[in-house]
Structure formats: structure tokens, C-alpha cells
Design a protein around this nucleic acid. Structure first.
Lengths: 242, 242
DNA sequence: CTAAGTTTTGCGGGTTCCCGCAATTCGGTT
DNA sequence: AACCGAATTGCGGGAACCCGCAAAACTTAG
């Protein structure tokens, strides 16, 4: 079996290598990459059947890598291995996983034996193995009432990038009122109306626009990685627009 | 020598322990903590002369721990050990380090030999050892023109928490116009005026208020940890205010 | 085809925000 | 004492934002 390990932290990479060697006894060809780009290069050079991906890597994130890999071979089994169970990541992944693909999601904090079981499950038994903590977030993020729709998420992104209503309207090709309407739905979904406790005499405490970003970030709906990614997309769009 | 290691990641903790044992040959008493709170408890139980602190830990961050430690013993030498060189961390640390204290700041990505040198430098030679990458950020964050003053930083925090101008004014005990004025300075410092390229006919692209948060986050001036911390402070203030 | 649900749009007005101008205060300096 | 830079405050106007109401457009089943 050919296994690709993409992880920027030296220690974790070595650890993964050790565990994989221990669990996957049959003849194993392993390649390590300390960056998303070199992982992709290695894969395009000669495909792998199994991949372990860290999600947070500089430049090219794990989600990007997975997307490109699955675009070519949906049969490749991928085990995601991440620090956090941020909704930003979960959303990114569930958007790109092909219906028939096999994958796993394990947090770095889980004990070693569960990691071993995940490796076996995904790479040998063709099962999807997802940590309980992650599963909880995933559940919530596919729930009709508490989760954001794609449109609302788009609005959140534009908002967090600092765009004006007008700019959002232009970017998403809707009217000004349309953009504002999406924002309104977003505010509602994030529960901004309830949390606003007007204390004393100085009226409403929170500005919906900025408060939305605040709760989105502390909920892990958005993180610095995702923001940088979206910023790049925005710049690309701006350039094309000129 | 008594050494306390606070780090939530198992692998990194074990690694640190190994390196420390190797470098500090004289008789060594080591205690490990996987959380800021237990680290603090251990320290209050019996002080340490040397501490290695991860900055990002759940609940009680490394900066918090350092603050409490130095409040009791300024002679304790602390080595910070972190994933990122975010200005949010740097600022947090430089605010609390006593003038005579000895400390170090090493990134997790630096090679092992440099970590060893840092451990020796800080714990045995009483030198301050700071990684080059970190030093760069530190420089910038104490520069008069590009860095934020404390007032501007306060404004950034309030802004990112989602407060209105009025609420900021109440919290910081200034007039409404005063709060707005601080915001204005903040916007200027973040360079929001220059980056606003009005493209085509749909006018200004960016909303200063939200754009400020965006650039602050992507610059690492603010991160999710710091935000959660400040959110707690805000809630405490709100409670007291009622 | 119809019905229910979601999304978009226009209108309107009340609020908040952004910021230039000018006056004032408050350390710290020469 | 005179001065300077930084911070604060009031005023005022133009722009942006928030949102309720109601009508259209579009989607998705039954």
C-alpha cells in the first residue's frame, strides 16, 4: 500500500509515521510531505491509495489537497487529522467529499489507540471513522435550524472580509436589498436578536455587523485560515472585475 | 533545579521533557501539566525556578499563567513555546513581563538544536532568548508608527467584540465622539484608507468597521484565543454594570 | 398544476456610523 | 513660560446600515 502523510509539524509527522508502520503491517511505501504543495506534487507524480492529511498547513490547506486528490481519484481514502473541530473545517470537507469516498476525521488530542483504530478502519476496512467530538459538530452543521445555509455562509464570508453591502451585492450578483436580506437571515441564524440585552440607559449594546463576526469566530464557524483563503478569492475576483 | 512544563499536546510535552532531560544534566525535578490551571496549581503548591509554557491552552492560556507566576516570583525564568508569532501573543507577553525577568520565546517550528540552546540560555545562563521570527514581530509591535497604542488596541478589542460606539464609550468612560475618534485612529493605523480602491461604479468596497477586524485577524493582531478572553472580560464588566 | 417554502426585490424611515473642522485639555520638553 | 504632540469633545452633514412590510420570482415536492 502506498501511503502519503502530509503534516507540517515534525513531531506529529514522525508520530504518524511510527503508528502507521506499526498498524499497517503488509508491505508499505510511505512518503512524507511537510506542506500541502509538496503533498500535491507527490500525489500528481504517482497517485496514492491512502492519505493522512493535517488540515492546517501553510499556503495550501488540507482541504485544498483533499479536493484536488478526490477530483482525480475518488477511490483514495483520506484520514483527516486536525487540532480543532472547527465548523469552518467541517463545512469545507463535507462540501468536497464525493458520495462514494471513504474518509476519517480524527482530532490530535485523541488517544493513540483510537488513532490506530481509525487508520485500520479507513485504510483497511474501507469504513468512515469520525471522532465523536467531530461528529457532534458535523451534526449541528447539517441541522436545518442551527446551521448556516450556503447563502448565509457566503454572506458571513463577505461580511468578515469587510465588504460593504453594495460590494456584496455586486460580488454575488444580487440587488442591494438582496444582500441586506441575506445579512438579515444571517443575523437571525446567529441569534443576534436574542443576545442583545439593552442595559441601563445606553441602549443597544451590539452592532449586528461586527457582532456577527465575533460569534462566528468564537464558535469556530470561521477561523483565520478560512479567512485568509477567502481573502485570496476576493482579491482574485477584484482583479478580474477591473 | 525544579522545572515545570505546561503543554497540552502529549507529543510536544514528551518531546520537551526529553530535550530538557538531555540538556539540563544537573539534578532535575520535573513536573508536567497538560493545562494552564493545573500548571498554576502546581506552581502555587511549590514554586519553580524554571517554567516552559505553551501559549495556546484551553481555559487558562500561557500568558495568564505567566502573569500569575511573575506576580509572585519575578525571578522565575519562563520559556514560551508557541505555534505562532501572533502579535496578540507578543503584545500579551510584553505587557506582563517584569523589567528584571528572564524569559525566552521559541517557535515550535524551530529546529531542535536551537531549542536546546534556548533552554540552556534561559535556564542556565540567565539570558533572554528570542527567535528571529518572533523578534521581527516584536520590533514591529513596539514601533511608533506601525504598531497600535494601547488605546487603539482597546478600540480594536471592543470593535471585534461587536460593541456599538455608544457601548464602547460607556465601557471606556469617554464621550461618544471620543470612542469614534479612537476608532478613527485605529482605522488609520491599520491602513484602511489606502487599501480602499473604488472599483468601477459601485463605490467604496470596504466597510471600515468590519474591514478593521479582517486585517487585524489576518495580521495576527487578534486571534480566537484573545477574542474569547476579551469576551469573558466584557461579560464580567456587563454583569458588574447591571 | 398546485401548494408550500425559500429567496429576491422595492420602498421607506429611523438609526448608526464616518469623518472634517475647530476648540480644549493634558502631559512632557526646551 | 512658551510649546508641542497626543487625546478628547462638540457640531453637523452625508453616507451606510438595519429592518418591517408586501409583492414577485424561483424551487421543490405532492
Amino acid at each position: 500500500m502506498r501511503l502519503l502523510i502530509a503534516e507540517d509539524d515534525k513531531l506529529h509527522r514522525a508520530f504518524l509515521k511510527g503508528v502507521a508502520e506499526e498498524v499497517l503491517t503488509d508491505d508499505l511505501e510511505m512518503v512524507e510531505a511537510e506542506d500541502g504543495q509538496v503533498a500535491l506534487d507527490a500525489f500528481l507524480d504517482a497517485p496514492f491509495e491512502a492519505v493522512i492529511l493535517d488540515l492546517q498547513m501553510p499556503h495550501v490547506t488540507g482541504v485544498d489537497v483533499a479536493k484536488r486528490i478526490w477530483a482525480r481519484h475518488t477511490s483514495t481514502r483520506i484520514l483527516f487529522w486536525s487540532n480543532y473541530a472547527d465548523e469552518a473545517y467541517i463545512r469545507g470537507i463535507t462540501r468536497i467529499v464525493p458520495p462514494e469516498a471513504v474518509y476519517g476525521y480524527v482530532l490530535k488530542t485523541t488517544p493513540e489507540d483510537r488513532l490506530k483504530m481509525a487508520i485500520q478502519g479507513v485504510f483497511q476496512a474501507d469504513q468512515c471513522v469520525i471522532d465523536r467530538e467531530v461528529r457532534g459538530v458535523q451534526q449541528r452543521s447539517s441541522d436545518r435550524v442551527s446551521s448556516l445555509t450556503d447563502l448565509e455562509y457566503e454572506a458571513l464570508v463577505d461580511l468578515s472580509l469587510g465588504l460593504t453591502d453594495k460590494a456584496m451585492a455586486a460580488r454575488r450578483r444580487v440587488s442591494l436589498r438582496g444582500a441586506q436580506s441575506r445579512l438579515q437571515h444571517l443575523y437571525q441564524k446567529l441569534g443576534l436578536d436574542k443576545s442583545d440585552i439593552p442595559v441601563g440607559d445606553w441602549g443597544p449594546s451590539f452592532n449586528s455587523r461586527t457582532r456577527a463576526i465575533s460569534v462566528a469566530i468564537s464558535r469556530g464557524l470561521l477561523n483565520a485560515d478560512a479567512l485568509r483563503q477567502e481573502e485570496a478569492d476576493l482579491q482574485a475576483w477584484l482583479k478580474k472585475k477591473i
